[in-house]
């Protein structure tokens, strides 16, 4: 019996040591593990011009300019993390999910602290999943504008059904001032 107990403690000790070692290694390399840098990091210490960096942040509402240069579409937009903004130039087709207020990761080089040329743009969607009708109802009720950030707390909408949302969308004619619209069901369970 004692041999088994001793083996158990040995196993526990080994796993604990290994876990600690792994945690320390991950801590030490934490800055290399991050997938992208934020605009404020780029602004405070611009990376060397020849280094490829991944810049992540939210597309600023109203900052997107698309044009065509010959065959290739060219886009310019600002990416922000709330503290600093970097202007990104990109030649190529943007991903389907690209929109104002969407998180994106732009891969390219920084020309200066506020100027970035991307060779690739990835869309980074968030962890909220909702039917189109619910999103429309939230937008219409004035609770959420996707161009300016994440949706309201999940408990206020995750039990709303498509039928509820359709009713909300159909009922009031044009309530741009928000109090007229009926509050979505299940706002406080």
């Amino acid at each position: 019996m004692t041999r088994k107990t001793r083996r158990l403690w040995l196993v526990i000790a080994c796993v604990a040591c290994l876990g600690t070692a792994a945690a320390l290694v991950l801590r030490a390399f934490s800055s290399d593990i991050v997938f992208f840098v934020t605009p404020s990091q780029v602004a405070s210490s611009p990376p060397p011009k020849d280094r490829t960096v991944k810049l992540g942040g939210m597309v600023v509402a109203g900052s997107v300019h698309r044009e065509r240069r010959g065959e290739t579409p060219v886009a310019t937009f600002d990416v922000t993390d709330g503290q600093a903004a970097v202007s990104v130039h990109y030649e190529g087709i943007l991903p389907d999910l690209f929109r104002e207020g969407q998180s994106v990761v732009a891969i390219g080089t920084a020309n200066s602290a506020h100027d970035f040329t991307a060779s690739e743009v990835l869309a980074k969607h968030d962890e909220t999943y909702m039917p189109k009708e619910v999103a429309e109802a939230l937008k219409k009720s004035g609770k959420w504008d996707p161009r300016f950030g994440p949706p309201p707390s999940a408990a206020s909408w995750n039990s709303m059904t498509v039928q509820d949302a359709r009713k909300d969308l159909a009922a009031p004619a044009q309530p741009q001032s928000q109090p007229a619209s009926p509050a979505p069901t299940g706002s406080a369970p």
């Binding site: 980074k124 968030d126 962890e127 909220t128 999943y129 909702m130 619910v134 999940a154 909408w157 995750n158």
Partner: peptide, 15 residues
Amino acid sequence: QPDSITLTGAPTMSS
């Protein structure tokens, strides 16, 4: 993206 279903908060996913 982070997890939609967590032990602590409401799931950020339509039912």
